[in-house]
Design a protein around this nucleic acid. Sequence first.
DNA 1: TGGTGTGAACAACTTCACAGCG
DNA 2: CGCTGTGAAGTTGTTCACACCA
Lengths: 215, 215
Amino acid sequence: MRGSSKFSKIPTATITRLSIYSRYLEALAQEGVKIIASDKLAQKCGINPAQIRKDLAYFGEFGIRGVGYFVKELLFEIKRILGLNKAWKMALVGVGNLGSALLAHQNFVRQGYEFAAVFDIDPNKVGRRLPNGLMIHHLEEMERVAPEKNVEIGVIATPAAHAQQVASRLIQAGVKAILNFAPIQLQVPEGLAVENVDFTVKLDNLAYHLTMGNT
Amino acid sequence: MRGSSKFSKIPTATITRLSIYSRYLEALAQEGVKIIASDKLAQKCGINPAQIRKDLAYFGEFGIRGVGYFVKELLFEIKRILGLNKAWKMALVGVGNLGSALLAHQNFVRQGYEFAAVFDIDPNKVGRRLPNGLMIHHLEEMERVAPEKNVEIGVIATPAAHAQQVASRLIQAGVKAILNFAPIQLQVPEGLAVENVDFTVKLDNLAYHLTMGNT
DNA sequence: TGGTGTGAACAACTTCACAGCG
DNA sequence: CGCTGTGAAGTTGTTCACACCA
């Protein structure tokens, strides 16, 4: 089997790992490393070498037998696969502590993601302009503003109580992918992509490990 | 098989789901709902009902056949399993945008987690006192302060470049669990629990779904 | 009767082991 | 020779289907 043709079933975990590979390849490229073998990369990522080769094999043949992978070339290919060869426009909803931190987070820009619109419902915030020049819109304006700014990804940084309502609005405004920081399982129609960033759950995992015997 | 005795191999996914169940049970309890069936809960969580029963079966029998589960009782049991019947002390490292947002985040306290110590390396921050009364310590003081404050969980909110160094310090100070917000794979000794909160990776997943055909 | 608890079937993902090629 | 690419084996997690019991 070869090629990324059509809808081969790619494990979600594979995509997640590709993202991780790209980070290390980026670092290697900056260090001037030209070639890397799956064993070396695997060690860095804490992953089985065969896993890396399998992951890549879903999309084609990028390596040279007996040698390894050209760092720059592989990085380019992975970025292409992930869709990082374009600038993604995001909308932030919720300019609280977390939302503000996300706005200030410089990794996004470096990575090809950009906040193109910002929303809130707090009258004290709506209408104000952020340091980066963006205006805080009222959530009501979502349907108008989001398409105008070509928003493709919605980022929910509101309290859990508002998250579902916000998600519905985003979807109505044509957004097809949501990054959800609220600790709630969003109900969305088929075909819509939702990723949850849920540190409460992660903490619970840690608490469990600390409580039970962690091998 | 029954009971949580010793080291039965529990899937990580099960623990994650238990955490999610607990959230919905909490909501149900507050709404005054007394009894819930696995089908109902499953629907809320977007999970297969059998999965819920399997997850619970790892730890005992908590339901009544033909009836369902007593909400309060099940919630109590899950919290006990996860180790949430105590207050966990956390140390925050990195009082930047993200770190500040985490400090202000009220869900932690409600959930039984508490920041007991805060660290940074920025001379402009070290020595200052936070609104909640906590003093920002220099990272160098970790080994002294962390044990003093009974820190059990380390939270890394520093730039990626510092994360590994911080992790090592936390470990040296006796911390056995780390919540890592830095986009890097931490190298830690066997038996230490690390959970990564990595929204860059999540965004990449969304970008992939938007780029490729999402069913 | 109706929903839990659970062995057994199934599906998905990971690792192994080695053929094949630069 | 050495490392990729990959079928096959192994492992882990999920769903089904129904016995069992309040």
